[in-house]
């Protein structure tokens, strides 16, 4: 098997650990989200939800726990969308020429960047989970070590496939763009609807129909569905809303993410096969 993508992976990880500021900030940023946004919002929401009578026999979780899954998802989204930017810099600084003129098949570039970005997302997701547990996120309640291990693997599976999809998208945009500023603009523009038309911060049940439709096809929603299923459970209430998910729902969400990632990979493949860099 041609393992050329590992070369791309190796170099990108080398840069990840080398740029200490980037490394530390990318690890601290999600923790700060949890610490500030999470704590602030949960203290408000939990007070609002306090008057709503609990559904009998259904566990109730605090808002911090509810949005903890959203923060993992959001961090994965941002990291992945910006994960391909290195390709733009490589292109602009001529480094891409070395790679494109080498015998390495071009789709290995996409795979290598995808895998390194996925690794970064894994590291971040684990840090958020640990930090979350420390500040009171109630993930994996009443679960034994084996259950927790399975749940963490389930979360990482969702995070992994989701991040690959957005990394392929990011790689496609990067190889097509000329300037980092333009890339930043496009990505910022994209994150807004993806993030807010999802169930990251609030349940989508009360959305207007169009937002509900959007959120139903939004990969972020499917990622969060998966994370909540593994981290919190299939049946719980948060801020007074009853959230249920069946294993079928979770499998459907996973399949949606697989389709999304596969689609993005095809587009990236097509774009890279046509890229001319001189």
């Amino acid at each position: 098997m041609n393992t050329g993508f590992l070369t791309i992976y190796w170099r990108d990880m080398l840069r990840f650990v080398r740029f200490k500021t980037l490394l530390v900030s990318s690890l601290i940023q999600p923790a700060l989200w949890m610490a500030f946004f999470g704590v602030a919002m949960s203290s408000s929401f939990d007070r609002l939800g306090a008057g709503i009578p609990p559904v009998p026999g259904v566990e109730s979780v605090g808002y911090l726990t509810f949005m903890g899954a959203g923060v993992i998802a959001m961090t994965t989204l941002f990291t992945s969308l910006f994960g391909g930017i290195v390709l733009l810099f490589d292109k602009n600084w001529g480094l891409m020429r070395e790679i494109l003129a080498s015998p390495l098949p071009r789709h290995h570039i996409i795979i290598g960047i995808g895998l390194s970005g996925m690794t970064k997302s894994f590291i971040q997701a684990i840090i958020i989970m640990i930090f979350g547990l420390l500040i009171g996120v109630e993930f994996f309640r009443n679960a034994g070590p084996l259950d927790i291990a399975v749940s963490v693997l389930g979360i990482l599976l969702f995070v992994g496939i989701f991040s690959l999809g957005f990394l392929f998208l990011s790689a496609t945009i990067s190889i097509s763009m000329e300037s980092p500023e333009g890339l930043q603009g496009i990505i910022t523009l994209m994150t807004m609807p993806i993030f807010f038309a999802s169930n990251a911060l609030y349940p989508t049940d009360a959305f207007p129909q169009i937002m509900r439709d959007l959120s139903a096809v939004n990969p972020l929603t499917h990622l969060i569905t998966g994370i909540r299923y593994f981290a919190i459970g299939s049946d719980f209430t948060a801020i007074g809303i009853h959230v249920t998910s069946t294993p079928d729902d979770v499998v459907r969400s996973l399949l949606m993410l697989v389709v999304f990632a596969a689609g993005m990979f095809s587009i990236a493949w097509w774009r890279f096969s046509r890229a001319v860099v001189t």
């Binding site: 170099r11 080398l14 840069r15 080398r18 740029f19 600084w93 001529g94 480094l95 020429r97 070395e98 003129a101």
Partner: peptide, 12 residues
């Protein structure tokens, strides 16, 4: 190949 401009990653 040796390219016209420097094509080296400064941080390697």
């Amino acid at each position: 190949i040796v390219f016209q401009e420097i094509t080296l990653d400064r941080d390697m």
